[in-house]
Amino acid sequence: METTLSNGLKYRRILLKLSGEALAQENGFGIDPNCVRAIAQRIKQVREMNVDVAVVIGAGNLWRGRVGQNSGMDPATADYMGMLATVMNALALMDALESMNVVTRVQSAIEMHSVAEPYIRRRAIRHLEKGRVVILGGGTGNPYFTTDTAAALRATELKCDVLIKATKVDGVYDSDPKKNPNARRFEHITYMDALNQRLAVMDSTALSLCMDNKMPILVLNLWDETALIRALKGEPVGTLVSD
């Protein structure tokens, strides 16, 4: 049964999972300041609705561990490089948010005191309670885990109401909508069906973690300027993955 908060919103605290490519230039690499500002503006709008916001960002715009592994690099080393790249993205987004007067903290699972706080769960929760945006870099701090898994873990630890996976498509489809014009979009799908059908929602570890902890996942198009706001109001947007 769906519930609505006293302020008319469906969610009080969200974790927003962004891919590194969301910050990228047109070629899919690097950091485009215009894209970063656009994302920061979306987050600012959410904060102005008094919704707590935690963010996990990938690193595909700066480094892909699979590329390193394919060239013979040690897998753990390649993953650690990716974790460091997520902190670079986190700092870029923090700078854009603070230029808009949104108080922001970056926490990293890999300690680097000069640029970010260490990730401490209770401190992160306190920041959220004070209305600060918390950007969580460094993945889980361990190799062999994706930022999808980091997002599932942090969403659970920080007692978020939903994990919102922001993409460039408007939900989860039964096949690639770019290749199949008849691809069907799901409005709702269960965790188990998403796992069994190997749908491109999140990796299996992240999906299983969300399933075990009953953390709903909402997949939506961040580049639709109204999608995130409508989702917070409980309107049917994107694809909901839950029990």
Rank of each mutant, 00 (worst) to 15 (best):
T4M: 08
T4E: 03
L5S: 12
N7P: 03
N7F: 00
L9R: 03
L9V: 01
K10H: 06
K10E: 09
Y11L: 03
R12N: 08
R12C: 01
R13H: 06
L15Q: 11
L16N: 11
S19A: 02
A24T: 02
E26I: 07
N27V: 02
N27H: 09
G28I: 01
G28W: 04
D32A: 14
D32R: 09
C35S: 15
I39V: 12
A40H: 01
A40D: 00
A40K: 00
K44D: 02
V53Y: 06
A59S: 04
L62C: 10
R66L: 12
R66I: 13
V67W: 07
G68C: 08
N70E: 13
G72D: 06
D74P: 07
P75V: 08
A76M: 11
D79E: 06
M83K: 11
A90Y: 05
M94A: 15
L97Q: 04
L97I: 04
S99T: 09
V102D: 04
V103H: 14
V103E: 13
R105C: 14
A109K: 03
A109H: 07
M112V: 12
M112T: 15
H113I: 08
R122Q: 13
R123V: 10
A124L: 04
H127N: 11
V134C: 04
I135S: 05
T146H: 04
T146N: 08
T147W: 06
T149V: 01
T156M: 09
L158N: 10
D161Y: 04
D161W: 01
D161T: 04
G171K: 15
D174H: 02
P177R: 09
K178M: 14
K179D: 12
N180S: 11
F186M: 09
E187V: 07
H188P: 03
I189H: 06
D193R: 11
D193F: 07
Q197S: 08
Q197M: 08
L199I: 01
V201D: 01
D203F: 03
D203W: 01
T205L: 10
L207H: 12
D212H: 04
K214T: 00
M215H: 00
I217W: 04
V219I: 04
V219C: 06
N221Q: 10
L222A: 05
E225F: 00
A227Q: 00
A227C: 06
R230N: 14
R230Q: 13
K233T: 03
G234D: 03
G238E: 00
L240F: 03
S242F: 12
